[in-house]
Amino acid sequence: MSIQLLQQELVAYAHEIGIDKIGFTTAASFPDLKTRLYTQQKLGFASGFEESDIELRTTPIKLLPNATSIIAIAVAYPSKMKERVVGKKGARRGIFCRASWGIDYHTALRERLAKLEVWLKEKVPEVDILSMVDTGALVDRAVAERAGIGWSGKNCSIITHEFGSYVYLGELVTNIPFVPDEPIEEACGDCTLCLDVCPTGALVNPGQLDAQRCIAFLTQTKGVMPMEFRKHIGNRLYGCDTCQTVCPKNKGKVNWMHEEFTPDPELAKPLLEPLLHMTNREFKDKFGHVSGSWRGKKPIQRNALIALANFKEESAVPAIIDVLHNDPRPEIRATAAYALGEIPNDKVALQNALLKEQEDMVLHEIKLALGEEL
């Protein structure tokens, strides 16, 4: 079978198994990306979640020595819920970003890539393959851009004409010399909406992100949230969609195509107060299948406290006091102290906690909440 025919049949099969876009590029290195990554590293803009070895991230043959091609895939996910729930006073809700709606996309894409691997091995038994989704060494967006999946937007997302930027990405490195696709021409034009509305100014330039200021990153950290970002968190529990929701290229892109990504509103926008005392088992049982659970319950509970503070939700004060006095984790107690300082109450609980608390970070937040430390 010729390479061209194999490629045509592979594209057809990919669509059969729920892959919405597929593209091909060479396994050549990514020199421009390498320069940008070293710059990001030098500026301190990296998140720390990425592969630390930039050579591995930009040189496919370091991952598969006989690689000649990379197959890029994209699977669309929904931007709207079919059923909505609305929070209200006394029953405030947080929100997970759209990329955490439905089943964990790592699972969904790995299943699709595994099917592509099986198909290719049946057609070409001697094939070598290495597949990855998000947590692999290669930069998914760079591969997708070069393979013609979409263009790299000013918000650092891959934007497709068909589905906007609401797509999950993955790739498969192989020694089969497929015919590369042409990259798509950048179509952001003069628009700078994503840069203009980024709550923390994390988009420092078109296509340049300071991850340390990005709300999507900040919601995944486990320590005490820096003070300057707390108001900007709003009611976000995991991730941030602002730079996507304002993008004109996403207008009308609903993407209700894959049942596995259909969100359960009670999981996508859960009640905040019940999260505060959720056990590890309860958290895993309820949220373990969504991508937003990967860092465990601590960041989610911390963010829930900040959200209740931003709502100034007085009905949650007793639950927050219980967290301040009884939670074993100092980061969570510190955030509870902050929340009590933001929500109208008599501050007696803060004063009592001040007498028994021994952790400096918690004492600092208690004093701030009481107005004793500036």
Results as ranks from 00 to 15, higher is better:
32 D>P: 01
273 E>I: 10
344 P>I: 07
73 I>A: 08
323 V>S: 02
309 A>W: 12
90 G>E: 02
55 E>T: 14
263 P>A: 15
184 I>C: 06
185 E>I: 05
48 G>D: 12
118 V>Q: 07
127 V>F: 07
262 T>L: 06
8 Q>R: 08
58 T>H: 00
210 D>W: 01
299 P>Y: 15
329 R>Q: 11
356 K>M: 08
196 D>T: 11
53 D>M: 09
155 N>A: 11
236 R>H: 09
103 I>G: 02
24 F>T: 00
175 N>D: 15
370 L>V: 01
120 L>P: 02
360 D>C: 08
5 L>E: 04
255 N>I: 07
323 V>N: 00
345 N>K: 05
215 I>Y: 07
213 R>V: 04
253 K>L: 08
357 E>M: 05
114 A>M: 04
222 K>S: 09
266 E>N: 13
318 P>F: 07
206 P>N: 12
54 I>R: 00
39 T>E: 14
347 K>P: 12
119 W>Q: 00
365 E>L: 09
38 Y>P: 01
351 Q>W: 04
76 A>S: 10
351 Q>F: 06
130 L>R: 11
127 V>N: 10
234 G>D: 11
191 C>G: 02
217 F>W: 05
147 A>Y: 00
200 T>G: 03
365 E>V: 00
1 M>L: 13
257 M>Y: 15
341 G>A: 04
357 E>H: 08
93 R>I: 11
5 L>C: 04
286 K>S: 14
215 I>A: 06
17 I>Q: 07
198 C>Y: 06
263 P>G: 15
297 K>C: 05
135 T>P: 03
117 E>L: 00
374 L>D: 13
242 T>F: 09
238 Y>S: 11
167 V>K: 01
117 E>K: 13
134 D>N: 12
330 P>S: 14
141 R>M: 09
197 V>F: 09
133 V>R: 00
331 E>P: 02
95 I>K: 12
189 G>H: 02
308 L>I: 06
352 N>I: 05
264 D>S: 12
113 L>I: 09
282 E>R: 08
155 N>F: 11
207 G>K: 06
329 R>C: 03
211 A>F: 02
32 D>T: 11
360 D>A: 14
218 L>Y: 03
288 G>A: 13
326 N>G: 07
306 I>M: 06
289 H>Y: 12
143 V>E: 00
128 D>Q: 15
83 E>T: 14
